[in-house]
Design a protein around this nucleic acid. Structure first.
Lengths: 189, 189
DNA sequence: AAATGACTATATTGTTCATTTAGTCATTTT
DNA sequence: AAAATGACTAAATGAACAATATAGTCATTT
């Protein structure tokens, strides 16, 4: 069987359960039923192994987002659905939750870098979607980079920060808030 | 002369220069030209001293905001001016900058508590302004608490996070973004 | 009566040393 | 011969302890 895949699976498993720092290469080898040296025939070091897994994760997220975006729908509908998708994705993926925790609480270097990469990937994706919408004249011209950044940060705040002190918002509420703030605006008529 | 005020001034000075943790009571006493014991005739402990200063700061911020909000102006204008005010305030007040840094980087307990208090005060203030605007029928009905929270978080992200990786936004740009996102919306006319 | 600073108990920081772990490589297995 | 392995090493980590720094007290001074 594919030893490389065994290793990747084992590492994903362990990172998801214990986080990056608390995962040892001995443990990965043991879970994968593989000698430790074997890992190093496929990956330069622990960080490279982690990198492979994070890259996969980002690809998956992109696919999840893409599957929910349809060009014939309006942008605000697409954003709404994509947000749903992202929320579902996070819920299903213990790995992202664990890593976000570790990044926030311990600040492990490699993990903070991971979070930055994920953030950059998501913002860049939103940016592209926005750019297309602007080109098609679907929304007002605006700086797509700042707008994507603002959407992402607000999204993260509503998910993580709001829950710290107040009753969590459900998906419908979050979706509705985005519609209201970013698309309709608070002004009357 | 007013020994209590001397102490408060000295402590403000030291907190602004070195942060909360790196400020010692000996240092405060020395700057204030006062025996250390004297500090404890006015304040229970270091945290109470800090508290007094933070309370003053919050009062000042509220006054600054109030001086820029005029009921006869539109909400979006008021928000725009208040943002200006807040940005100016931050620039002039080394203390807020230093403390925000310390809270983020070191996570000193008392400082994180301080940040939470400032955050709560600002959000509550925005909430009141929004509530009045809704009552007057100036903007669409919306949850004023979540909206205030969203405005605050977006503001903080644009000030602090955006600058980390990209060219800082100036006051006009930030003001314009708020106008666009929260009031006009991205949807076409 | 108010102010003070030497003093103490506690918290913080620096240091040492034992343990853990990433990564290597000589040996074994296929 | 090529791939896999795990005992081994050097480096990182962290626990335990020592040294220092600091918050807060209180007997003495002003």
């Amino acid at each position: 069987m594919d030893r490389k895949q065994l290793i990747v699976d084992a590492a994903t498993e362990s990172f998801s359960r214990f986080g990056y720092k608390a995962t040892t290469m001995d443990q990965v080898a043991k879970i994968a039923n593989v000698g430790k040296g074997t890992i190093y025939t496929f990956f330069i070091n622990k960080e490279e192994l982690f990198d492979e897994i994070v890259s996969n994760l980002i690809k998956e997220m992109k696919q999840a987002a893409e599957s929910s975006v349809h060009p014939e729908r309006s942008l605000s509908q697409n954003v709404s659905f994509a947000l749903y998708q992202l929320l579902e994705f996070r819920k299903d993926h213990q790995l992202t939750i664990k890593l976000f925790q570790e990044g926030r609480d311990i600040g492990t270097r490699a993990v903070v870098d991971f979070m930055d990469r994920v953030e950059a990937a998501i913002i860049n994706y939103i940016k592209e979607v926005l750019q297309r919408a602007i080109d098609k004249g679907e929304i007002k011209p605006c700086n797509p980079e700042v707008t994507a950044f603002a959407m992402f940060k607000l999204y993260i705040s509503l998910i993580f920060d709001w829950e710290k002190t107040r009753q969590p918002l459900n998906k419908e509420e979050i979706s509705r808030l985005f519609e209201l703030y970013f698309f309709e605006g608070l002004s009357l008529g």
